[in-house]
Amino acid sequence: MVENNRWGNFFAHLVLILGVAIVIFPVYVAIIASTHPPGTFIRGVMPLLPGPNALENYKTVITDGRSRAGTPPIGGMLWNSFVMAMAITIGKLSISLLSAFAIVYFRFPFRIFFFWIIFLTLMLPVEVRIVPTFQVVADLGMLNSFAGLSIPLIASATATFLFRQFFMTVPEELMEAARVDGAGPMKFFKDILLPLSITNIASLFVIMFIYGWNQYLWPLLITTDPEYYTIVMGIQRMVTGGDSEPLWHLVMATVVLAALPPILVILFMQRLFVKGLTETEK
């Protein structure tokens, strides 16, 4: 710091504390709302201090859901979200590790062509080609299944690029040494390359888990069976499902439960998260 300005620092802290307060405010409100009995929301402005009904509300959403509006218990939806997020994450990581390995360590006809095919996926987000993708998945009979929820989302150009870049920096000598010792390509991949990439894998894991967990449009389209609802899309059903005002105390309890897992992932793995974020996007 060039000069030390006490008032400047005070002002900076003030701005930041206010900023943090504003950033946290929506979640604070949600947590507060989830602890109140239903009556509170009929009587006018929502409260800013916790109410007495926390345990009851959370128990209701986890075990019962809102059967009247056709939303299943949250417990099952949380599980579906977890399975989908894990399937997408692991799928993305494994297919991009393999294809990056092929592109960096082999020389074969049409290598550039395949590279471009993978690159194209970067330009075609699901939201953009939504109707035809839905038709393909429907034709393959993958509606209402975990395969349909995850497989169409696992192709990832960014992960392939990142691994490709990382593999390029791995010293050539390692590969030569492995070959002198008689290791084949797959043995080299498994015993040398994978252990070296472990930090990269972990930081991508954080990013992709959040990506998978937060999927919204895709599960909305291909699940009509409540058994496969994921929690993020389930909230929308709760908000618009009834004919009157939503049951805010239950909606907010669900919101808190839906937002918690990815937030915890970020908070506990902040360093990996920041690394993954700044590296995938460059």
Binding site: L98, F114, V136
Partner: peptide, 27 residues
């Protein structure tokens, strides 16, 4: 690529297959 790549006629295609198939079918 690396200076002295691995040599295999079919392995690189097998490694690329999962990603390329998903990309072709769903993208």
């Amino acid at each position: 690529t690396k200076r002295i790549p691995f040599s295999s006629r079919w392995l690189p295609y097998a490694l690329l297959a999962p990603q390329v198939i998903v990309t072709l079918i769903f993208f």
